[in-house]
Amino acid sequence: MSKWQTLQTRSFLESTARQRAQGLVDEGSFTELVGPTERFISPHLPELGEAVEFDDGVVTGIGLLGKHPAIVISQEGRFIGGAVGEVGGAKMVGALKLAQSIYEKLQAENPAEVQARRPIVLISFETGGVRLHEANAGLLAHAEVMDQIQNLRHKVPVVSVVGSKIGCFGGMGFVAAATDVIVMSEFSRIGLTGPEVIEQEMGRAEFDASDRALVFRTTGGKHKYIMGDCNYLVPDSIAAFRQQAIAIAALPMDAIENLRRIGSRSAIERQMQLVAMAAEVSPTDAKDMWKAIGNENPQQLIDANYTDFMAQAKRLTPAA
């Protein structure tokens, strides 16, 4: 078995950012851009005596999904929690700009092939958001990433791939929400405020951050799938995420637009209805929402394996 084939069967959750990046695209097609040998370390961490990484915790590069150039951004949670600083942020912004320039070149030189060769962006999140050691630069980078995502609207699908240990929180939680499509496994999470902060704000009686099951049903893949916040829930293997990415790359752009949760007046009108529903249901647990959506036995869904969950879960869909 080649190295790439071995990667395919690996747990996405257990894989490093680089393994995820290499495995998400076609065999042998990944070229890392501004990789470790370029040695773009954070200029700020050494001043603080903090360990540095040659890639600053973000792997960026390009591969192929068939004929589609796939721009990959993959965050490494084991390096300072995947938090985004100046260099890592610039790599994200640069990769998104690259996707735009590839699209524009294609549009200008080969308009008939746009659908067949349209680039796709895959962001494999593993982050709590801003890196506090360089907080201001990290925050400003988040705004730039958001700006670039809007530039790609209706042109290049931007896909959140969320199957990592840390998941996607803080300012990057906004970024994930703003992408076109979200693919998750049940073992990962998306949110804004992490469990410890909620516990601190509301008290342990309201939210016990050490209760793993509670944490997962509040922001985990199964919950996000039921709420319509994640479009596709996949098993925990690199191959499963890759198969989903291939299917998304083949979709026409208007179908991609229908997968969005936010980004237009009609989309936010639906979200406002969901907020009104929340005010009415006043959920004390995610299970209350699952019930309100039509799942009579939430506990059964929590316990269900992937196949049974997919067969049984009733869910909201973004465009419904």
Binding site: T16, A17, G35, P36, T37, A51, V52, E53, F54, E76, R78, F79
Partner: peptide, 15 residues
């Protein structure tokens, strides 16, 4: 060149 590892806590990378 070859690169390996992640600079996690208690860990290192090498080129």
């Amino acid at each position: 060149a070859v690169h390996f590892g992640v600079v996690g806590s208690g860990d290192m990378e090498v080129i």
